[in-house]
Computed example of a mutant assay.
Amino acid sequence: MRRTGPLLALLAGLAVLIIIATTVLVRTVSSDTEPDASPPPPLTATTAAPAPPPIPQSANATFASRVPGSRAVVALTVKGGNAIAYVCDGRSLEAWLRGKVYPEGLIRLQGKKGILTGSVQGDTVIGAASLSRKGVMGFRAPVVRPPSGLYRAAARTTEGAQLVGGWIILPSGAQVGLVNYGKEPRPAPVLNPGAGAITIEDERVAVAPADPDAP
């Protein structure tokens, strides 16, 4: 007999965080709406549009957006059934998270600083990142196309320090990222996505789109 308990627990946990994320997004959008604005008419059985199908597990896509009510941005790259995400505010907050995309379109990623859960809905990921001491940050991230996306550098410096850098490039051209190599994280230098490398502290380091299967 198949054990459904763990799967049901996972689905329940994801549902709770997605509800929290949706509540955060609704409150943020509501606060920006004019008080006298007329609400849209309710959807009826004849006007409701069907939900877009989830991206299949074989698809490769990157999603990115700003987090409402925060300086942070979030980007997530899906490759087959695996995913990698980066949350960063360009100052001190950053977190790398990795995990799975399940057949139902549900996502659960985990890292040293927290977890990220969500749901792939057509060309958008709706989810929430729960990071240490930062609470729950809800987001709605659409698909982005190159050169927008999530980029990562991971290498050893000539002094033997482990260097890890992350960049999120939004469709507007804005970049947010941090570089960490044994010191306090510092703002990442501006990245030319087509160069394939960047100079950091006199070190030439390879940079590539983040790959869920790479270290």
Rank of each mutant, 00 (worst) to 15 (best):
P54N: 10
P39H: 06
A15F: 02
R145W: 03
G118D: 00
E94L: 13
N192G: 08
T199I: 13
L191N: 01
P41Y: 04
T77L: 09
A129V: 08
D213H: 14
R71H: 14
M137T: 05
G118A: 08
R145T: 11
L109N: 00
T62V: 15
D89M: 12
A129N: 06
F63M: 06
V87A: 07
L14V: 10
R71V: 06
P52G: 15
R156G: 05
D36T: 14
D211M: 07
T77Q: 04
Q110R: 10
A37D: 02
E203G: 09
N180Q: 11
Y86V: 00
V120N: 12
E104G: 12
A95I: 05
A83D: 00
G5P: 01
P40R: 07
P50A: 13
V74W: 01
A72I: 08
G111C: 10
A64P: 02
A75D: 01
R145Q: 13
T62L: 13
S132H: 10
V101F: 13
I200M: 08
K183N: 02
T28Q: 13
D213I: 01
V179A: 10
A206E: 03
D202T: 08
R98M: 06
S70I: 03
L93P: 02
L7G: 02
V125S: 00
A61D: 04
T47M: 11
A21G: 12
P54F: 14
P103A: 15
A15H: 03
Q175A: 15
A95N: 04
G105C: 14
N192H: 02
V87R: 01
T46S: 15
A64R: 01
V24D: 01
A75W: 04
L109I: 05
N180S: 15
P146N: 06
T158D: 10
G111M: 11
G111F: 07
P54M: 12
P56I: 14
S58L: 05
L116A: 07
A154E: 02
V67T: 09
A210L: 09
R108H: 10
P53V: 14
V101Q: 10
A72S: 15
S92L: 15
A188L: 08
